Amino acid sequence: MKMKNLKRIAAFSEGNTGGNPAGVMIGEEFPLDEDMQATAKEVGYSETCFLVPFEDGWRIRYFSPETEVPFCGHATIAAGAALGQRNVSGACRLYLNDRQIDIEIQHHVPDRISVALQSPETWTRQAPKGYTEQVLRHFNFTTDHLDPLYPPMIAYGGSKHLVLVVKDMRVLQNAAYEFEPVRALMKEQGLATISVVYIESLKRVCARNFFASGGVYEDAATGAAAAALAGYLRDLDWGGARSFEISQGVDMGYPSRIFVDYGETKGESVRVAGSTRFIV
Rank of each mutant, 00 (worst) to 15 (best):
M1Y: 08
M1H: 10
K2R: 09
K2A: 09
M3V: 10
S13I: 05
S13F: 03
E14I: 06
E14G: 01
G18D: 09
N20H: 05
L32H: 10
E34Q: 05
M36N: 03
Q37A: 04
A40D: 00
Y45G: 03
E47M: 05
T48N: 01
T48Y: 00
L51C: 08
V52G: 03
E55W: 00
R59M: 12
R59H: 10
E66Y: 00
E68G: 01
V69H: 10
P70L: 08
P70W: 04
G73I: 09
G73K: 11
A78L: 05
A79L: 08
A79C: 07
L83K: 07
L83M: 09
G90F: 10
Y95I: 12
D98K: 13
R99G: 03
R99L: 10
D102M: 07
D102R: 07
I105P: 14
D111C: 08
V115F: 13
A116G: 15
A116L: 07
R125M: 13
R125C: 11
Q126K: 13
Y131V: 01
T132S: 11
L136S: 09
H138Y: 14
D144T: 13
D144W: 02
L146D: 07
L146A: 07
L149Q: 06
P151W: 12
G158T: 04
G158A: 12
H161E: 09
V163M: 15
L164P: 04
V165N: 02
V171C: 13
Q173K: 14
N174L: 10
E178Q: 15
F179Q: 06
E180N: 13
V182S: 04
A184Q: 13
L185G: 05
K187I: 05
Q189D: 06
Q189V: 00
S195M: 11
V197I: 15
S201F: 01
S201C: 04
K203M: 00
R204K: 13
C206K: 10
A207W: 00
G214M: 03
E218F: 09
A220T: 01
A224I: 08
A225R: 05
A228G: 08
A228Y: 09
A230K: 03
G231K: 07
G231Y: 14
L236Y: 12
D237A: 10
R242Q: 13
S243E: 15
V250C: 11
M252K: 07
R257V: 15
D261F: 00
Y262R: 02
G267P: 06
V280N: 13
